[in-house]
Amino acid sequence: MVKPSFSDEIANLLHASHGNPLITCIQCGTCSGTCPAVDYMDHTPRRIIGMIRANLKDEVLNSNTFWYCASCYHCTVRCPAQIDIAETMYALKRYSIWKRVHQEGLVGPTFSETFVKTILRSGRSFEPILATSYLFSAGVRELIQEGVTATKMMLKGRLPMLPPRIKRLDNFKRMVSRVIPLEAE
């Protein structure tokens, strides 16, 4: 059995997008021309697709491109080759989390994992806990700004003090464990 190429591996992770595989990309750049966050990415989405196809696995996993995808799906609806680029970025995030390989200093991976843990613990998300993952990496100035915003919202009654949880939490946790094994808490 031939080892699947990086391109195949990523394509195999795309359950959701039964759309065209990356190999039909004509490198036209519509995705990167559309992307609202492209200025912050170290490689444009088009280039990432090219890099995947060239099997530049390490370079791809170490790029920030897919962590900076805002999931706006604008590239997806415009792609002339009908490649679901936004879902490809999700696939790369998943791959990166599983392989525990990502660019240093990125908040995205930690945040994602915290978020997931929160949901699995209570069934619902809770902003104040989510913010804690952020505390470790943000600078002092940003932290203060965040704090001010949070306080304002708290005063307007828009941030709750206690985390919400669903009623049938036991069932919920067992349901989740049928999909992925839960870590012992």
Partner: peptide, 26 residues
């Protein structure tokens, strides 16, 4: 919905696609 749970937002799909669908499916 009497006991709805989080849909997974955008973040959940980063971690596990199948579980994200499960959350919504509930």
């Amino acid at each position: 919905l009497e006991d709805w749970n989080c849909c997974g937002a955008t973040t959940y799909f980063h971690v596990d696609e199948l579980l994200a669908y499960t959350l919504c499916a509930r």
